[in-house]
């Protein structure tokens, strides 16, 4: 099963959707890796052993720390979410689409074929390119536990918008085959994603989406509730506090009552904050299991 409460990483990178000042304060607080690791340790001490993170360079260092201290992180699992979009967006700005691809795809293989293939690309080329990119992002989690590997919402929603649905199946196949993990999809557009995954035969998918009583950043609005009732899925709720716009107890009570919600990913900057969130969730879901996820 999924960890019911999963620590997220937005706060470590100064990402706050409500206040630039708060975001800045967090960026300063967490500019040293030790401060990030302190919060992870506080989470572990409170029984929160799941960490959902982007594939940012700094996470590579956190992963190295966990790898170096197996005793301290025995039940610790990573839920990687890729790609770290800014890395690619900045590369595209500097060197264009092709330059960016050349920068991130090691060796000549995929990009060379892409250039030569042009309009006559074959399916294998695209599969190959996609899997090389996934493997590059996953390298930092070598020998660590990653029961679910997520495609970030920027990518999921871009592919969804383009109608490039096949990519979800490619990702699903590769993550299962190469990492023995389940594929997860972060999205801001759950009502449009679930029918697509259903058509692709990806049953009971793990999805992570904004879910809060305020309706903040919930693409499709009211259709989300209907989609959660209609399609079988395992939903991880994020932005449950609507970036702080909702009182914590009210926010947790609401989200714990939604259908198909198995888990909550939350941001926290201190042990006190982690404990408070855990206690609230336990009021609704009962004592949280300490077990690691199956794979």
């Amino acid at each position: 099963m999924l960890n019911r409460l999963i620590l997220g990483d937005n706060q470590f990178f100064g990402i706050n959707h409500m206040s630039e000042e708060r975001a800045r304060a967090q960026a300063i607080q967490f500019q040293d890796d030790a401060a990030v690791i302190d919060v992870l340790d506080a989470a572990v001490a409170e029984g929160i052993t799941g960490f959902m993170c982007t594939t940012h360079d700094r996470i590579a260092r956190v992963a190295a720390h966990v790898r170096a201290h197996p005793g301290a992180y025995r039940d610790f699992v990573f839920y990687p979410a890729m790609p770290y979009a800014h890395k690619y967006a900045n590369a595209v700005t500097e060197d264009g689409m092709l330059g960016a691809l050349q920068r991130f795809v090691p060796g000549e293989g995929g990009v060379g074929r892409l250039m030569r293939g042009g309009l006559s690309l074959v399916r294998g080329d695209i599969d190959h390119l996609a899997t090389v990119l996934v493997d590059a992002e996953m390298a930092m989690f070598d020998r660590l536990t990653t029961p679910v590997v997520f495609l970030q919402n920027n990518m999921v929603d871009l592919l969804l918008g383009l109608g490039a649905h096949d990519a979800f199946a490619i990702f699903d196949r590769h993550v299962r085959a190469r990492y023995g993990a389940q594929a997860g999809y972060v999205t801001m557009n759950l009502p449009r994603l679930l029918p697509v995954l259903d058509r692709l035969g990806i049953t009971d998918p793990i999805v992570c989406t904004s879910l809060n009583a305020r309706g903040f950043r919930m693409g499709g609005g009211d259709a989300i509730g209907a989609a959660l009732r209609r399609y079988r899925c395992r939903c991880i709720a994020m932005s449950v506090f609507a970036s702080g716009a909702l009182p914590a107890d009210e926010a947790i009570a609401w989200v714990c009552a939604q259908p198909n919600v198995e888990s909550i990913v939350f941001g926290a900057s201190s042990g006190r904050h982690i404990r408070a969130t855990r206690d609230l969730v336990e009021q609704h879901w009962g004592p949280l299991a300490r077990a690691t996820a199956d794979a």
Partner: peptide, 14 residues
Amino acid sequence: ATYLLGLLRHQTDH
């Protein structure tokens, strides 16, 4: 860029 069009043709109906 034909490689971009190729990707799009492969992956979408546009």
